[in-house]
Design a protein around this nucleic acid. Structure first.
Length: 337
RNA sequence: GUGGCCGUAGCUCAGUCUGGUAGAGCACCUGGUUGUGGUCCAGGAUGUCGCGGGUUCAAGUCCCGUCGGUCACC
């Protein structure tokens, strides 16, 4: 899922998203409740109508903002000071449900408490249990039958906590289950172990969504462990910072060596950017801070990630996932990200 | 022509008074960024201190000359 926090995937529009093959986009409850407000979006026909996106939309609850903006957390609610005007903003699990129903998301996430790592086990456990209690409140508050609701597993990198969180979240009967609180500072091995512990307790017939994960290696690690859905700002943010994701490894298009390079970012890429523009031209746009650089690189990076996961999906269907992952890895060499 | 001011990193300049290991910002070169503020962060390279001479243990700094730029006056 490309990330469109404020009902917009930065630098591109709905036509671009269709062109890259996006099937669903993510938007954010916390940001939209502040600007422009969920009442306004509801009045204008809901999020799909508002942003002119016909495909599915998943709204994140604001749980990640509890992590990134560090509000005061009580059993009742998270209390933010607005990033726009500093006003005191209270968000309860019930309000997060209500706002997402107003927005008209196809998939709504429960409000969870994401803990940055490393963290003391006690803190991780406290917030994991709070997330479970909030999950029950969210289920009770949920009323739209045309909207799916996903619970979120927490528990840091503690395998027992992950396992318990996953089992109890699954028992609540959500339409899908997310694994949250990963890619927040922990080593990859610990993340993979935590994911395995969670997945082991999750039903096979419901979507498993790893929140916030999006680097190539991390995606493949998670797919191999049974994850089905992802969102991440990596492809879009890195695009705006001049970094291109490619089959043969990632690189910053700013680098001197691309000054006179007539080849596309990725010779195997189907995207409009690669079919039309050279590395030399894109480097020029980035260096001159031209607005089109953001759009063209975003289109490419989104295409890369979407093709990466659709390739994995096809490999799963043909029973050849391991071979597929080995091939992707060897082609990338040591390419980072 | 006379007088003033200026000449230091690719750019804009500090350092000159009071001599003591040549600096900053920007630009440039790498790397980082995970349920988004387009940022930010961390490293790195960079000098005929206009040129020549003198004084001094030591000169970007003081003295003399010279070249270039600029302004004012004639």
């Amino acid at each position: 899922m490309p990330v469109g926090t404020r009902a917009a995937v930065k630098a591109v529009d709905s036509d671009d998203l269709i062109a890259v093959g996006a099937e669903i986009v993510l938007a954010n409850t916390y940001h939209l409740m502040l600007r422009p407000g969920s009442d306004l979006i509801a009045e204008l026909g809901g999020l799909h109508e508002f942003m002119s996106w016909d495909g599915p939309i998943l709204t994140d609850s604001g749980g990640f903002q509890i992590f990134s903006l560090q509000p005061e957390i009580t059993e009742q609610a998270a209390v933010f000071s607005s990033i726009y005007d500093g006003a005191r903003v209270e968000l309860t699990p019930e309000e997060a449900v209500e706002i997402q129903e107003q927005l008209g998301a196809d998939i709504a996430m429960v409000l969870d408490v994401c803990v940055g790592l490393p963290a003391p086990r006690e803190e991780v456990e406290t917030q994991m249990r709070r997330t479970l209690r909030w999950a029950e409140r969210s289920l009770s508050a949920h009323s739209r039958t045309d909207q799916s609701q996903f619970g979120i597993v927490q528990g840091g990198t503690d395998l027992d906590l992950r396992s318990e969180s996953a089992r109890r979240t699954a028992e609540l009967g959500f339409d899908g289950i997310a694994v949250g609180g990963l890619s927040v500072g922990e080593p990859a091995e610990e993340r993979n172990a935590a994911l395995e512990a969670a997945v082991a307790e999750l039903p096979e017939d419901k979507p498993r969504y790893v929140m916030g994960l999006g680097d190539t290696v991390g995606l493949l690690d998670a797919i191999r462990r049974g994850a089905d859905m992802f969102d991440c700002v990596i492809p879009t943010r890195l695009a705006r910072h001049g970094r291109a994701l490619t089959r043969t490894g990632d690189f910053n298009i700013n680098r001197v060596e691309f000054t006179n390079d007539p080849s596309p970012l990725d010779s195997e890429c189907r995207c409009p950017t690669c079919r039309r523009y050279s590395r030399a031209y894109l480097r020029h746009l980035v260096r001159m801070n031209e607005l089109s650089a953001h759009r063209l690189l975003t289109i490419h990076n989104l295409t890369y990630v979407l093709d990466l996961v659709s390739g994995a999906r096809e490999a799963i269907e043909s029973g050849a996932l391991d071979e597929h992952i080995a091939k992707v890895s060897s082609q990338r060499g040591n390419g980072s990200t």
